[in-house]
C-alpha cells in the first residue's frame, strides 16, 4: 500500500475527475491518492466519481483556496 499525490490545480471540471480516474487506473487496491484542486466543483465531482466506482473518500478539506481530497483505492 502506497500513498500518491496528484496536482489537479488550475484545471476545471471535469479535468480533475479525469486526472483522478486515470491516476487511480494505475494504482492498486489499498493505495491512497491525495488530489489537490483549485476548482471547488471537485468537492462534489470527485466524491461522486468515487461513489459510482467504489472508491472511498477518507478526507476532504478546503485550505487557502485549494481543495484537498484523499481517496482510498478499492
Amino acid at each position: 500500500m502506497s500513498h500518491f499525490t496528484l496536482d489537479a490545480r488550475r484545471t476545471l471540471c471535469p479535468m480533475p475527475v479525469i486526472k483522478t480516474q486515470n491516476k487511480i487506473a494505475e494504482l492498486e487496491p489499498g493505495d491512497t491518492l491525495e488530489v489537490t484542486c483549485t476548482d471547488p466543483g471537485a468537492l462534489n465531482d470527485i466524491p461522486a466519481w468515487c461513489r459510482i466506482n467504489g472508491h472511498t473518500i477518507t478526507s476532504s478539506r478546503e485550505q487557502d483556496d485549494e481543495v484537498i481530497i484523499v481517496i482510498q483505492v478499492n
Binding site: C13, P14, V17, G41, L43, N44, D45, A48, I52
Partner: peptide, 12 residues
C-alpha cells in the same frame, strides 16, 4: 449554487 457534473449525477 450547487456544483455538480451532470453526467456523474446521471450515472449515480
Amino acid at each position: 449554487k450547487p456544483k455538480r457534473n451532470n453526467a456523474l449525477w446521471s450515472a449515480e
